[in-house]
Amino acid sequence: MAAHRRTRKRTSGTARTVLTVALAGAAAATGFDGPALADPRRTPEQVRADVARLYREAEAATEQYNGAKEKAEAARHRLRGLQDETARRRARLNEAREALGSVAAAQYRGGGLDPALRLALSEDPDGYLRGAALAERVGSLQNARVGQVRTQLGEIERLRGAARVETESLTSRRAELERHRKTITGKLNAARRLLSGLPAERRDTGQASRPSGNAGDGPAAPVTARAPGPRAAEAVAYAYGKIGSPYVWGATGPDAFDCSGLVQAAYRSAGVSLPRTTYGQIDAGRRVARSELLPGDLVFFYSGISHVGIYVGDGRMIHAPNPSAPVRLASLDEMPFAGATRVS
């Protein structure tokens, strides 16, 4: 009996060991924070590299979220328009039905004698013939109104079908939004957990050589003077005025921004409407080479075109980096350059 108890104790200890190893392996397998948290020997530079990767992945998901949100809003707008048009068609259908009902009631009240017999019995044949011609015209009007009702019914059915399509599209976009939202929040939460293990002064995930940039770095006037046009100059001035604003994914201002939100807001202030996403913005103007950049040009980074900033000259841009840093001046060299666009 004692031997049996000893065997159970050893088995329990083995199970705990296996469980501990399994949990450690699961932590190491997770794509968010496993490696950094499981291995205490990782250097701050390695942790920061993981955080930077998570931020890049979150930003790519943010642009997908922004695109899905833009499409959802367009679907919502189209659905609202279809609903309004359906209501107008219904009002016209009701009017046509009322008119048709009035004609039918009048014919019913007029009786059903054979026209030839009514002509023979009439004390005023000429008057009856005039009335018969009017009745024929009324019949033609009735046929026209029946046609109107049929047309209205067909249009309403077509609108209902279009509204069903838009409703399905909107439902799909909302599900897509939720998927991207979960991806973004998961990666950002993982990045925050990793950063919390570093000293405060080591939590900026950018390169050490990056210009920190703030509103006191100098006036925007010398830069805007070199812009290719007044709209670009206004966009640059707006961006300078937002240095120090926090990064918030999905935000388009006026007090917080993500990267494409800052660009969109800057050009909106200049009267230019840009797409919401980086991969839409890169096609919103004329492509320019890096050697031809002028203040106000949009500069894009990474192979997936997942980040954008506003060029301000001297190899620098203003951009919204990630949640660990506010809107700031930065070197173009801190990220892999993917292309540039000049907005006219």
Rank of each mutant, 00 (worst) to 15 (best):
W249A: 00
A220T: 00
A221C: 10
G31Q: 14
R160W: 05
Y240W: 09
L121N: 05
P323M: 09
S140L: 13
F257P: 03
A68D: 03
V146R: 11
A106T: 09
A340C: 10
L262Y: 04
F32I: 10
V299K: 05
A251K: 00
I243N: 06
A215W: 13
D33E: 12
D333A: 14
A256H: 02
D217A: 15
G67T: 02
G139D: 06
R8P: 06
H4R: 14
K69Q: 04
E157D: 15
Q152G: 11
V343Q: 06
P222G: 12
A15K: 12
L54F: 14
R137P: 06
L129E: 07
Q107I: 05
L117H: 12
L113C: 09
A338G: 08
L332H: 04
L54G: 04
Y128P: 07
Q107W: 15
A105Q: 07
P44D: 10
R41H: 08
A251V: 00
A68L: 03
L19V: 02
R97T: 09
F300Q: 02
L100F: 03
A2Y: 12
V288Q: 05
G261Q: 03
G218Y: 11
R164N: 11
F337S: 00
P211I: 05
A340K: 03
A99H: 03
L129R: 14
N214P: 06
Y238S: 07
L93F: 12
R89G: 05
R80T: 12
D33P: 01
Y267Q: 05
V18Q: 09
N214V: 01
L79T: 00
V236H: 01
A340Y: 04
G218M: 06
R316H: 15
L93D: 04
P35G: 07
D204S: 13
P115K: 02
F300R: 04
A68M: 02
G139Y: 01
D126T: 12
A72H: 03
A284E: 09
G34P: 09
G197A: 10
A28Q: 07
G101E: 08
L153S: 13
E166I: 10
V343D: 00
A215C: 10
P336M: 09
R6D: 08
R158D: 15
D283K: 11
A60V: 08
T278C: 10
Y247H: 08
A190W: 00
L188F: 11
R53E: 15
G31M: 05
L79P: 01
